[in-house]
C-alpha cells in the first residue's frame, strides 16, 4: 500500500529530525527537505495519471483546453509554492516563506490576467 510507505517514510523522518534537532539542527532541516521531496515526487506521479484521465474527459465533454490548462497551472503553482514555503517555515525562515508565497500569488495572478483581459474586452463589446 502506497499510503503505508509514505506514512512510514514520514514517521521515520520525523523521528530522525527530532533526534538530530538537538545535536545538529542543520541536518534536521535537510532531512525534512529530502523527505518532503521524496513524498512530493511519489505523489506527483500518481497525480499525473489522474490529470491524464481528467484531460481525457475534458476533451470528451468538449471543454476548451484553455480553461483546463489554466486551472491546472494555477493548482501546480499553488502546490509548489506551498511546498517551498513550508520548507522555509520549517527551517525557521518565516520571512522567506512569506516571500515565496507572495511570488506564488503574483504568478497565479499573472496566469489570471489574460482571462480577465479577454473577459473585460467582451463585456465592453457586448454592452452597447
Amino acid at each position: 500500500m502506497d499510503i503505508m510507505k509514505i506514512v512510514m517514510v514520514g514517521i521515520i523522518a520525523a523521528l530522525l529530525a527530532v533526534v538530530l534537532k538537538e545535536e545538529k539542527p542543520e541536518m534536521a532541516v535537510a532531512i525534512s527537505i529530502v523527505t518532503g521531496l521524496v513524498i512530493f515526487v511519489f505523489v506527483i506521479t500518481k497525480l499525473n495519471s489522474v490529470m491524464t484521465v481528467l484531460k481525457h474527459f475534458a476533451a470528451k465533454a468538449n471543454i476548451e483546453v484553455l480553461y483546463f490548462t489554466t486551472i491546472l497551472k494555477v493548482i501546480a503553482i499553488a502546490y509548489i509554492t506551498e511546498f517551498g514555503a513550508q520548507i522555509c517555515r520549517d527551517a525557521g525562515e518565516g520571512a522567506i516563506a512569506a516571500k515565496v508565497e507572495f511570488a506564488g500569488k503574483v504568478l497565479i495572478m499573472v496566469i489570471a490576467i489574460p482571462i480577465l483581459a479577454a473577459l473585460m474586452d467582451i463585456m465592453i463589446k457586448i454592452i452597447p
Binding site: 497525480l47 480553461y67 499553488a78 509554492t81 500569488k105 482571462i115 473577459l119
Partner: peptide
Amino acid sequence: FIMFLDTIIPNSSMKRYINVIVGLMIIV
C-alpha cells in the same frame, strides 16, 4: 471539475486566489 479540484488544492492563503480564477472561468 471545479468541485473535484477544490478538494485537491492546498488549504492555504492561496485558496482565495485560486477561487478568483475559478470564478472568472465560470463567468466565461
